[in-house]
Design a protein around this nucleic acid. Structure first.
Length: 478
RNA sequence: CGGGGUGUAGCGCAGUCGGCCAGCGCGCCGCGUUUGGGACGCGGAGGUCGGCGGUUCAAGUCCGCCCACCCCGACCA
């Protein structure tokens, strides 16, 4: 067994994923089952995700705040579906400061309830609306089976919570945020997601309508990468979030919530990663460029290092690192940074100094094909251009892979064949929770989403045969 | 919570029918030679063999109980 090489994706996909996450120093297992430590490199990626989302949230009028980790148990019980959905996975605190608490506290699994409680205090008038608050934080859900980033007992996320005067406005907000997630996923992470609506069975506990962005991973399984919920007046009624409108009539608010978590890091890993390791999209990569000086002796070192320093100085604004370690060879460094998914590598050796050039290697195109020798003049422009090219190529590649594995079977047998081979099905669907459950039982596929973009026309439901004008995606999912 | 598996150095593992000083590879530390795709030599450091109990002259090895983690299911972002 070659310990230097990752287990190839084709041999064992989950083994590949687990090894990669740990070896690339994204995350590590914590002493408590199902908990993870997000390591600095993984957190740097998360910070870039945060920046990309924050700028979008703020541009659409949202502000950040922080709500408490502990929520009175009774809060959860105020919304019937919500409590049913979350009860099985709650962590409950019963002792504080050595004595039994009068009311148990739950560690938040999500914050609709406590934020709803605060909103009822803060909202009096239609003039207080809309209220558009987001928070970055951690939540706890006591899951049975966990996997680094994809499902951990504790995870980090952002959750936006908004209150509106009308149902139309709430729906508009819900869809706007879904759109922001879609844009973020495609243009920052190069993850080509499909935005759509969740079925009744798959929707958030307590929501009227749930929307999702669904992504296809390298093993062709689906991953819910972000959600946006229209909560109607469910939480407004449970927490008495009301206001006086222009006509002095008391009205319940219409609320929304939307979230995207560290799970998205898993999506990036499984969308782009290869057998060499991570492949990170330039726009989010903590390190966009690594420079590796190459020399055989002190003389060459003296020759090369000043050039490295000069070029580094010219590359302001590009997130770069110079790997000048002397204890490992260049070959080792190549593998080291490929494992970590750095989009671009620059090699500068004696030959380059002599020719006034550098060698550039693209992470998205492995091997010789991705390597080029370019002049040192105008290097910054060239690198910025290449980073953009890589970003675009990654999206294109992922989109192509996704589309090649989406099929439109015409009958249920064909449907089963596709699912058997882990492809996605895009099929006519007559919404029916019982049939949906049967499909899940018979094929393990779930209804991923009813995409916002519908092809139009009519067809017969893949399961019931009933006429319908709705098409939906089915797939095995994480 | 059901099924399967694994706990021996930081990581990956070997350790036969119970036997003498518990080993190998990688990594780590020191010195030297190397350096354009995972370098090599020499010298070192590192162990409560998951825990508790039992059998035995003798336990990493056999028996019992417990714990933890991983994989596959059911459940979920």
């Amino acid at each position: 067994m070659d310990e230097k090489k990752l287990t190839p994706k084709s041999v064992n996909y989950s083994e590949w994923y687990n090894q990669l996450v740990q070896r690339a120093e994204m995350a590590d297992y914590a002493p408590v089952r199902g908990c993870m430590v997000v390591r600095p490199y993984g957190w740097a990626l998360w910070e870039n995700i945060q920046d990309a989302l924050n700028s979008r949230f703020k541009a659409t009028g949202h502000v950040n705040a922080a709500f408490p980790l502990f929520i009175p148990m009774s809060f959860l019980e105020k919304e019937k579906e919500h409590v049913e959905g979350f009860s099985p996975e709650l962590a409950v605190v019963t002792i504080g400061g050595g004595s039994e608490l009068e009311e148990p506290l739950i560690v938040r699994p999500t914050s609709e309830t406590i934020i709803g409680y605060m909103y009822s205090k803060w909202i009096q008038s239609y003039r207080d609306l809309p209220l558009l608050i987001n928070q970055w934080g951690n939540v706890v859900r006591w899951e049975m089976r966990t996997r680094l980033f994809l499902r951990t007992l504790e995870f980090y996320w952002q959750e936006g919570h908004t209150a509106h005067a009308t149902t139309e406005e709430a729906e508009e907000e819900t869809l706007q945020m879904l759109d922001i997630y879609t844009d973020f996923a495609r243009n920052e992470a190069a993850v080509p997601v499909i935005p759509g609506r969740k079925s009744e069975t798959e929707k958030f506990a307590g929501a009227v309508r749930s929307y999702t962005i669904e992504a296809m991973m390298g093993d062709k399984k689906a991953l819910q990468a972000g959600t946006s919920h229209n909560l109607g007046q469910n939480f407004a009624k449970a927490f008495d979030i009301n206001f006086l409108d222009e006509k002095n009539t008391r009205q319940y608010c219409w609320t929304t919530s939307w979230g995207l978590s560290t799970r998205f890091i898993g999506a990036i890993i499984m969308t782009h990663g290869d057998d060499q390791g991570l492949v990170l999209p330039p726009r989010l990569a903590p390190i966009q460029l690594v420079i590796i000086p190459i020399y055989r002796n002190d003389d060459e070192r003296e020759l090369v290092l000043p050039v490295v320093e000069r070029i580094k100085g010219e590359l302001e604004g590009i997130r770069l690192e110079v790997d000048d370690r002397i204890e490992v060879t260049p070959g080792f460094k190549f593998n080291h940074w490929e494992l970590r998914g750095v989009p671009l590598r620059m090699e500068i050796g004696p030959k380059d100094v002599a020719k006034n050039s550098v060698a550039l290697a693209r992470r998205d195109i492995p091997g010789r094909d991705g390597k080029s020798f370019v002049p040192q003049d105008g290097i910054k422009q060239r690198i910025n251009g290449l980073l953009e090219t890589i970003q675009a190529n990654m999206l294109e590649k992922a989109t192509k892979f996704r589309d090649e594995h989406i099929f439109e079977p015409q009958d249920y047998q064909g449907f089963k064949d596709v699912i058997e081979n882990d492809g996605w099905c895009f099929v006519w669907w007559h919404p029916d929770s019982e049939n949906e459950a049967k499909i899940k039982e018979e094929t393990k596929a779930t209804l991923r989403c009813i995409p916002l973009e519908q092809p139009g026309g009519q067809g017969k439901c893949i399961y019931s045969g009933e006429e319908t004008n709705i098409k939906a995606y089915f797939a095995k999912a994480y």
